[in-house]
Write a protein that binds this DNA or RNA. Structure first.
Lengths: 146, 146
DNA sequence: TTATTTTCAGACAAATTACTCTTATTTATT
DNA sequence: AATAAATAAGAGTAATTTGTCTGAAAATAA
């Protein structure tokens, strides 16, 4: 099941990586991120630029440059990242791709899907990356293939 | 959110259309399906060929030909259709695309995602197209854009 | 000041998905 | 037998996603 595009997957991995660091004050370079997460450097560059332009991360050029979070990790939720990388309507659509599918004019799968979709949406709305960063650090959760 | 490819979306719509018909004994032509559902004829042809090769529908050439369900609608579940059109592993993957993500080696989102994913999977396993077909017929649920 | 390290910007290329076209084959009707 | 209506098969095209490359600009350090 490909819920997210690669852009989002890599973007999430990168932001979660940063959120899992002890010291979030200093910049992390794209090179380090791409090496540690095994993501194509140039592709990741594009993704971080997009996150930077949308104020999820701030970037700094030159020596010791890189990206860091624009605000406290606990104030950044997963949905903000997805909204940037997939668009703000990501968690809204119909599973059969019918426009204006809702309780008034539902498709045959609307009842099943809307519930699942809204559950997923609220997880993404209510989960901040500080808690995830801590879990990664403390429980050794992984962000890359073995 | 683009959960399914267009192939699956159109395939589901077409099969649900057939399941919603009063008389499921006679063949429905691809032309009728593509007209009524506003799906590209040639693209739908491909999708139905694939469903036909995988015994979801059986097809018949020539005059009065077309496709019909291979078995009783109540014996066809949504997951069978998706398994053909997206592959049998569709409801299994990790949301961060990590291979072998499970309780042993989870990604940071595994707990959230696995539950939602399995809920969705069991809906697709346990919903047959007869019940959906009836709902479409009785409640006038729609399968196309307004 | 110069060299090095970094992001920024935009063009380019490959892969996948979505869709189209053409020809052949089968079946039923006249 | 001839014609028309339908699917089958496979090649071809367009659009989108994914990934690559190059050169410029900025910041820091020597």
């Amino acid at each position: 099941m490909k819920l997210f595009s690669k852009k989002s997957v890599y973007g999430l991995r990168a932001v979660l990586y940063i959120a899992s660091l002890e010291n979030q004050q200093q910049y992390v370079s794209t090179l380090q991120l791409s090496n540690d997460l095994k993501i194509s450097f140039h592709f990741l560059t594009k993704i971080l630029q997009s996150l930077s332009q949308n104020n999820i991360v701030s970037s700094h050029r030159g020596r010791n440059g890189g990206v860091s979070l624009t605000k406290q990790a606990k104030k950044i939720t997963l949905i903000e990242i997805i909204s940037v990388l997939e668009g703000p309507e990501f968690f809204n659509g119909c599973i059969l791709c019918l426009p204006d599918c809702d309780n008034e004019m539902p498709c045959p799968l609307h009842n099943y899907w809307a519930e699942i979709r809204d559950d997923l949406k609220s997880i993404f709305e209510n989960t901040n990356i500080e808690e995830l960063g801590e879990k990664i650090r403390n429980d050794g959760l992984r962000l890359m293939p073995v």
